[in-house]
Design a protein around this nucleic acid. Sequence first.
DNA 1: TAGATTGTTAATCGATTAACAATC
DNA 2: TAGATTGTTAATCGATTAACAATC
Lengths: 212, 212
Amino acid sequence: MLQNATVKSVVKRLPIYLDYLLDVMKNDSNVKYISSKKISDDLSLGEVQVRKDLSAICGNGKPKLGYNIEKLTNTIEQYLGCNHIKKAVLIGVGKLGSAIIAFDEFKKYGIEIIAGFDIKESGNVTDIPVHLFNKQNLKKIFDQNEVNIGIICVPKQAAQDVCNTLVELGVDIIWNFAPMILKVPKNVLVQNENLAYSLSIVSSVINNNSKN
Amino acid sequence: MLQNATVKSVVKRLPIYLDYLLDVMKNDSNVKYISSKKISDDLSLGEVQVRKDLSAICGNGKPKLGYNIEKLTNTIEQYLGCNHIKKAVLIGVGKLGSAIIAFDEFKKYGIEIIAGFDIKESGNVTDIPVHLFNKQNLKKIFDQNEVNIGIICVPKQAAQDVCNTLVELGVDIIWNFAPMILKVPKNVLVQNENLAYSLSIVSSVINNNSKN
DNA sequence: TAGATTGTTAATCGATTAACAATC
DNA sequence: TAGATTGTTAATCGATTAACAATC
């Protein structure tokens, strides 16, 4: 069922479907089936695209009825690994770092931040301990836990160093908020959250609109 | 020079080039020209892609020499509207909101946050006044300034309401951090910064890697 | 059976890459 | 002039959309 070949463009839409389906079920727990037409209308997507996306990950739609909404939800959650707990550490507990730690949506995808690290030790942020950042302290946590994810919220000057340390300790994926491109070995994946790049789009859109 | 037709895929790479070029110039102020080969090598992009991107926005490369690095930088900055000041307000000055206000990269793209708004009035965040959020207060700021950008950092339950108010007051573009899809009229553009969706990719990557 | 809706195959569109011509 | 590097036209690749066949 979980074909690795499922393309990136489809995976990117899965959380959109998931949010939508959860919402539909919350609003009316009697709905058992939902059609691709309704989904596509509500989400402003192409009808065929929805059908093709869904058939790529489950393909248990019933002609005349649509998709069993509960089954579909479960399939998407399974595909996204929502029920498989993954542990993360976050480095750089400044304003952004604390905001991320407090971010509500981690549980939804089965991700748990088990510790924060900062060059200033600073107690707790909403239950999660913040340790002094150094290799020994970090290693201790990695020895006691299987840590999959490293979240980088340090200033960009420090980001590559922090990244190297995380890679050395064995994270699989880095969620990077530092506005720069990190160098990592091929087996590590970097998911960039480059706010500056988004900002550049905001800026260019206004710039070019006002030229019209 | 600034063709509106320049495609989105190209625009998305412009800030990458810009960061890179600024960095090259900082490290060696003697470099006058840079070739597409060097750029593509350093950024791990295709050589032809770099050349095509650059020719789309400027096209003043010199055979045998490369591109005048200063001219190129200026052109990109101009294209992205870096030297044209655009004003923004930010709604929801919680942890994430304060982090955004303090974010360093606004100036680079000519964006200025002139005020924050929150349901709790809370003084200042790094020089920027935070007002009590209500329509009157918001309108006052819009009357006194040409505000182009609304930044939404409120919880998702409040986001659509805030969005409507901002649209009504006349923003051109909304930078949305609430993890949901906002409904806006066609003339308003929403740039989503949906951390939850990024997170879902983080989750799915680990999930599917560990299946191999 | 007729009709609604799924699922798939083929056509289109957009972006990237390859081949090559133009130019300093 | 020869060689390096740009810029453009054509080929390829991937994703979306359209057309239609399959099925409950």
